[in-house]
């Protein structure tokens, strides 16, 4: 969803950092995207390629680290692995699972010159 907006936000974060720290070129952008963040990695990579053109990050490699999904099942009272946001609890089959990990969308670090 809305990967183009996210790509533009990522470029903005990169350009803000470039203005503050005075680097001229970014060769790699490392992102952390949780499995439950609702982001399609391929669509995001496609949008970033377009958005980065003509910027300090033109041609930069994009490393996308997927963080695993995790939830707390209210019925079981424990943390369980979650593949997709609204899946049933793998232990009890109930739907009272609140996402506790894997919703992150962060720019982690950059390799710059």
């Amino acid at each position: 969803m809305h990967e183009m907006s996210l790509a533009e936000s990522i470029l903005q974060i990169v350009e803000d950092a470039a203005a503050k720290q005075g680097f001229k070129r970014v060769s790699e952008v490392r992102l952390e995207i949780g499995a439950l963040a609702g982001v399609e990695p391929e669509a995001l990579a496609f949008c970033l390629d377009v958005v980065f053109r003509g910027s300090v990050a033109a041609g930069a490699r994009v490393e996308l680290e997927r963080l695993p999904g995790q939830g707390f099942c209210l019925d079981c009272g424990e943390t369980v692995p979650v593949m997709a946001r609204y899946d049933a609890c793998p232990k009890c089959g109930g739907y009272q699972v609140q996402a506790t990990g894997g919703t992150e969308m962060r720019v982690k670090d950059l390799l710059v010159e």
Binding site: I13, F23, R106, D109, L111
Partner: peptide, 14 residues
């Protein structure tokens, strides 16, 4: 002359 810059920012932070 690559160096690493830590960012650690939420993409939707703004």
């Amino acid at each position: 002359q690559e160096r690493m810059v830590r960012i650690e920012q939420d993409i939707l932070g703004k």
